[in-house]
Structure formats: C-alpha cells, structure tokens
Computed example of a mutant assay.
Amino acid sequence: MAYIHEFGIVTCIEKDKNYVRYEPENYNCIGVDGDLFDELFSKDFGKKMHHLETFAHNTNRPFKSLAYCGITLIPPSSQKQFLNMVSEANNEYKSEELEKLMKKIAAAIKEDKWMIHFGV
C-alpha cells in the first residue's frame, strides 16, 4: 500500500492549538512518497534530520526531526536548514517530489510562515 508524507504552509500558527487532526487540505499540502522518505532516512539525511528543531503537535512540544507517524510543525527558524537537507538529498535522487518540497519550503521561507508535516 502506498503512503505519503505531506507538507504544507500554516497561514497563521496558533500557539496553544494541538495540531492533531489530519487536515492536509487546509494547508495546500504536497506529498512525498513514503518509500522515498524511508530511503532518505536510512542515509545521511536521516542523521541530519535529527538535528532539525521542530515541534510535535503544538508549539509547546519541542522536537527534533519529523514525527514519522504524527504531525510536525516546522518553524521559520528551521526552514533554511530543512531546505538545504532536501536540496542535498535531491542532488542524489533527482526527484520531482523533492523538487516540489523544495518549492514549498522556499515559499514558506519567503512568506515567513510555519510549515506542517503530516506523517504516515
């Protein structure tokens, strides 16, 4: 069965809201194939990802990396690092999905908005 990780931009982050509902349509999410993400996480990308400062489900729960089976909030302060990691991975994989993810991250950076990740 195919599964995907979805990434979107949060127009207005609610500091005390628990982001626990699967609502990718609310954030204009793009998908990245789960098998591709598994492959990335098994390499250097996965090791680097454990240094990415994020939040799990709300802005009061600091986290490192992406919540594989949950919801991750990626603050603007971590997005350049995230973009660099995805760009490095795309240099090896040349994936259309990673290209779309890089564009989504760049848009979030430009707009100074938080990102949301829906794991599998």
Rank of each mutant, 00 (worst) to 15 (best):
M1K: 14
Y3C: 00
Y3L: 08
I4H: 12
H5S: 10
H5G: 06
F7K: 02
G8P: 06
I9Q: 02
I9A: 10
I9F: 12
T11I: 05
E14L: 13
K15I: 11
D16R: 14
D16S: 13
D16T: 13
R21A: 14
Y22Q: 03
E23N: 13
E23P: 06
E25H: 13
N26W: 13
Y27I: 11
N28K: 08
G31L: 05
G31M: 09
V32Y: 08
G34D: 00
G34I: 10
G34R: 07
D35L: 14
D35M: 12
L36T: 15
F37R: 02
D38L: 12
E39Q: 10
E39P: 01
E39S: 11
F41Q: 08
F41K: 05
S42N: 10
S42C: 07
K43C: 09
D44K: 15
D44R: 14
G46H: 05
K47S: 12
K48V: 07
H51W: 10
H51Q: 12
H51P: 02
H51I: 12
L52W: 06
L52Y: 03
T54D: 05
F55H: 06
R61F: 15
R61Y: 14
P62A: 01
K64H: 10
K64R: 13
L66F: 07
A67E: 12
G70N: 09
G70T: 02
G70P: 08
I71Y: 03
T72F: 01
T72I: 07
T72P: 00
L73I: 02
L73P: 00
P75A: 05
P76W: 04
P76K: 04
Q79N: 07
K80Y: 11
Q81C: 05
F82C: 05
F82E: 01
L83N: 04
N84V: 08
M85L: 15
M85P: 01
V86Q: 04
V86F: 04
S87K: 15
E88T: 06
A89Y: 02
A89W: 06
A89D: 00
N91G: 06
E92K: 09
Y93N: 01
Y93K: 08
E96S: 02
E97Y: 02
E97T: 13
E99Y: 08
E99H: 06
K100S: 15
M102A: 14
K103M: 09
A106G: 11
A107Y: 03
A107W: 02
A108E: 00
I109G: 02
I109M: 06
I109S: 05
K110T: 11
F118N: 00
G119K: 06
G119R: 01
